[in-house]
Design a protein around this nucleic acid. Structure first.
Lengths: 376, 376
DNA sequence: GCCGTTGCCGAAACCGGTTTCGGAACAAAT
DNA sequence: ATTTGTTCCGAAACCGGTTTCGGCAACGGC
């Protein structure tokens, strides 16, 4: 098949059939009887290559199964065609059931561009600095996906300082903060979900609605609380600071905050939770007071964790498409690295309501509920 | 500081302060007034470099913050100093709460060697082929970690064929299968846990013990069932095929299989589950028959999923240290790639019993239990 | 005092790509 | 017929490392 024993292009014919089996650009060039520079430029879309030779090169590359080594390209171009995901492992709820889906989405999107995904985990903020710096200095990735961005996120600070492309999963404070005004992000509108939850509960007949927020360290936390208060505003309900709780990071803290709300003189007949984990914790607080979830106290969560469909009563929640999040984030990041302006690479999607059995019309008024709790 | 305006080593003095800020091996060489080949060999431990110059090179490299680009090295060495993790995303239970910990362990171990971790997910077996092949052809990784190995695992087949290093999380059938006899693996001895579970239940007074296994497609499934039957053997209990169920992959299937066991003429007073998910499904089957978990029917799970501590009664289970698994797997794989023989890189660890409230002495005999169930 | 080792290091080739530069071939313009 | 301009491609430099090869100097042995 390959019969070109005669050297047509000086110094670029490889006679031996290359150990390792890989087809290199030199093999391709000698097979085509052209210089490797032509091959390279043909494959990279340079304009000084005629359409006919480009086609020929592409067809032969295809036929021979030529696949350039991204790290060989990287040494000249500086691009390794990889994005990195930085997971912070110091969180209380490190059991993230969505991670696999998220990764699947990110990998698939990256793969569509011919890119790959590398991960790195950090146990502490200071460890983060080391890990990220190493990744950057060794050029292991061209850009970073930062899930669960915090209000003051050390990852963001470092990457900004080094001028490395990144994308956040989660906005900072409506994008108003100056330092972030040219950053790109993808987010799910938790505030819309929270607002809709209030509207839904009010239309079910609830008048006193509590809110249990999450860790204020995270960006999403502020947005969701704001969404909740906007929901109150939209339904002309009077905001009551007593009904606003914050900082429920875990299931147990969800239980604790719910207890506090139910011990009020005027307890809420419905509670909206910034996270499913906190909402699941509420079940314990509610049932141990002899109350029924969905009757005496309505509960609405957010996230769509798998467990939400198995608890009894099943949890009404706003489902987040995590797989899509990973996919969009990866896609936007690659586009940013390829040169599109970061501040135009932003996307906001909605969470989807999953109606189940943890909410309904209030069985009692707030006053009646208070009495029932007192008797306990 | 850098005052060597005179070229001491021909052609290797970089006058301009390098855009991008990176310190290259050339910078280092000119700073040290030696050739870059000497620098390279000094840093890579060649024996023909004197100890004094090696020290000098290392100190200066440290001082200047020199860090070789792994992909620049890779083009010559063929090693990119990265391992890949191949996640199969076509599983029914893709909500793996342990993934983050697993990744953390793997990343940390890799990082200790100066390596990184890249991930790739596959939606189907045939997609797997494409994804893996691309990763290998582009040399994105030097080796692969394969979690959740199946009895006939397409990933294993492909990697073996291509001669690419890999390590399995999970043995194949006691390592007796010929094709795997030189593969390396890390595993948790699920069979020991199953056996101990039986012993524990017998010593609590149980005489009829059921077993609900997992997907026989996976390697661990067979081992765990074998462990269960060995437990019966060790306690001189008569094995009863009716008490052996298989194929509970999800919570719902756990419910179904439990129902079948409890409908037997001689139902078990205790059931051992190959996975926590199936065991959690059992709660529904047991309670809907008017029975109490931990009294009428004892339940023991395996995995240590977070939810196991939140259900009521809390689930007695065998906890798997997933983080350590990731760590060991990565470490063993890197050692294999570095040249240690694969068949000597195997490790078996034990799961740890977490005693909670889902098991106890039997409240009723099997016959009494059957009557109680009939009345329902 | 000569010779063969040995220790140590520089020059250059090399890995697989990309990019710059210059020039041949041809067409169009003068 | 010469000049000018395009089109298209080859040669060579380059990226940042590793590895081969050869040679100089010092050293020990006879």
């Amino acid at each position: 098949m390959n019969t070109n024993r005669i050297t047509l292009v000086k110094g670029q014919v490889s006679s031996s059939p290359k150990i390792g089996g890989r087809v290199t650009i030199n093999d391709l060039a000698s097979h085509l009887c052209m210089s490797k520079s032509t091959v390279s430029r043909a494959l990279n879309g340079y304009s000084d290559i005629s359409e006919s030779t480009r086609k020929r090169v592409e067809r032969t590359a295809q036929k021979l199964g030529y696949r350039p080594l991204s790290h060989a390209q990287a040494i000249r171009t500086g691009r390794v065609r990889a994005i990195a995901l930085v997971l912070q492992n110091d969180e209380p709820d490190k059991h993230n059931p969505f991670l696999q889906e998220f990764l699947a989405g990110a990998c698939e999107a990256a793969s569509d561009f011919g890119w790959t995904v590398t991960i790195s985990t950090t146990k502490s903020d200071q460890d983060m600095d080391t890990v990220l710096t190493r990744l950057i200095e060794e050029r292991k990735a061209d850009g970073f996906i930062l899930p669960r961005t915090k209000v003051t996120d050390p990852r963001v600070r470092l990457l900004r300082r080094l001028g490395v492309p990144y994308i956040m999963f989660g906005r900072t404070d409506h994008g108003q903060k100056k330092i972030e005004k040219d950053a790109s992000w993808f987010d799910i509108s938790g505030e819309t979900a929270m607002q809709n939850a209030v509207v839904r509960l009010v239309s079910l007949g609830h008048q006193r609605i509590g809110y249990v927020g999450s860790d204020p360290e995270f960006n999403y936390s502020h947005l969701r609380r704001e969404g909740f208060t906007q929901g109150l505003h939209a339904t002309k309900l009077q905001p009551d600071p007593d009904l606003l709780r914050e900082g429920a990071r875990t299931r147990d803290e969800g239980t604790t905050e719910t207890r506090v709300l139910l011990q009020l003189d005027q307890p809420p007949t419905a509670i909206v939770y910034a996270t499913d984990m906190a909402a699941l914790g509420a079940y314990k607080a509610i049932t141990e007071l002899g109350l029924t979830v969905g009757k005496d106290v309505s509960v609405i969560g957010y996230d769509g964790v798998p467990e939400s469909q198995y608890v009894r009563p099943a949890l009404t929640t706003y489902d987040v498409d995590t797989r899509m999040a990973g996919e969009r984030l990866a896609s936007l990041l690659v586009r940013q690295i390829r040169g599109e302006p970061a501040d135009q690479l932003r996307e906001l999607q909605e969470a989807q309501l999953v109606e189940r059995d943890s909410d309904g019309p209030p069985a009692l008024s707030s006053t009646e509920l208070a009495e029932k709790i007192q008797k306990q």
